[in-house]
Nucleic acid binder design. Structure first.
Lengths: 219, 219
DNA sequence: GTGTATATCTCGGGG
DNA sequence: CCCCGAGGTATACAC
């Protein structure tokens, strides 16, 4: 990784055009060729950047970075204040827990936590407009489409509504009803869901994980 | 801006849990307190981070960063290879061209590029649920709501559907039909749009800009 | 502050 | 390779 602190101006032309007037910034060049231009504020997003794979042409006070899509990033260096390189090696990467996929696995294993007596028909059930998180059968035999979100918001209700519209055209499945399952559901989403006859279930991730580990402990 | 290259491990606990095992990484501390942990690859997103505002507690080989929401980032420093600080000053910021707003201006000037014979009634036509990008009149006299996106996806169809539902309640406008205009429209969005009787138009931003500059050249 | 729409979104997975 | 959905999305803007 190469770190350069320099007064520079930057031009990007590609999906849009963007220009940075002259100022002192950090230019980070990663081992894979990614170039990031950071200011001393904002948050984690660079002001300008070019992801790998790309080609860096280092000219006299002017770097031209191009990628296979034909996008270009031109950095004009006016004054280099610092320039250092470091060998970092490859990173083992990030372990995450608590994302939607984890919640989906837990609920697929314990559909009864969504509704008493519910059983799983299929996970990631494919439709023409995308996969339904869980397709289940309720205690009364009706098919239920379950949309799982970490946070239940209007988007989730819209998404589930679209799936239901398509699922209900299949005479082998119809009538299908919907349930939005999330760790927390916003009032607006609850209102919209109720209006469309969609059920809402708030699930406790930590409690589910507890059930899961209890089950594992039995075997 | 402070730049530290160090062997470290990192733990984040907040909206989810994430852990980075020991490796050499760049730790960037910005003037506003933002902390970013970067590997020597991937692209612009840090492996882990904490945005400002936050509180950094710099202990013996262990930094604890907390934010007002109660999220924490703990960095355990095992070996510091480099530690430098630089004064960058404030950044003048980024100028952009080619975002959705620019496309909207161009199409408002040339509604005939959306449909032959179309004329503009109003830009950002206000409804109770938000502004319609363009309200137009088609060659046959019917009112048309145009939703403009840089990239046409399902969200855009949903948005336009909500507007149409509302516009069609106004007896002075009804019946209103909808058109999604974008530089590129994804197949799923086209399918959903067709299903709802919404038209799709793919527009060439560069060509539009060419028309615009030709028009300007005439005056 | 909440809610909504945009983003050079990024990132990862599946066909 | 594209397509799709999730994200600690972040960010700007309106109400």
């Amino acid at each position: 990784m190469r770190l350069i602190v320099a007064r520079c101006s930057v031009d990007y032309a590609g999906r849009l055009s963007a220009r940075l007037p002259s100022a002192v910034r950090l230019i980070m060049v990663k081992a894979d060729g990614s170039v990031l231009v950071h200011a001393d504020g904002g948050s984690y997003k660079p002001l300008n950047w070019m992801n790998a794979p790309n080609h860096v042409e280092e000219g006299e006070g002017r770097w031209t970075i191009t990628n296979p899509k034909g996008e270009t990033l031109v950095i004009t260096l006016e004054e280099v204040l610092s320039d250092s390189s470091h060998d970092l090696g490859t990173d083992p990467g990030l372990d995450k827990d608590g994302v939607e996929a984890d919640l989906q696995v837990l609920l697929a294993d314990h559909p009864g936590e969504i509704e008493e007596g519910m059983t799983l028909l299929e996970r990631e059930y494919a439709t023409d407009i995308g996969p339904v998180d869980l397709l289940c059968r309720a205690a009364d035999g009706q098919v239920v489409a379950v949309e799982i979100k970490r946070r239940g918001e209007i988007d989730g209700v819209e998404q589930l509504t679209r799936y239901l519209e398509f699922l209900n055209r299949d005479p082998l499945l119809a009538p299908v009803r919907g349930v939005l399952a999330a760790q927390a559901i916003k009032p607006q989403a609850k209102t919209l869901a109720a209006d469309r006859g969609i059920g809402c279930v708030e699930v406790d991730y930590d409690a589910l994980r507890g059930i899961e580990s209890n089950v594992l402990r039995l075997f």
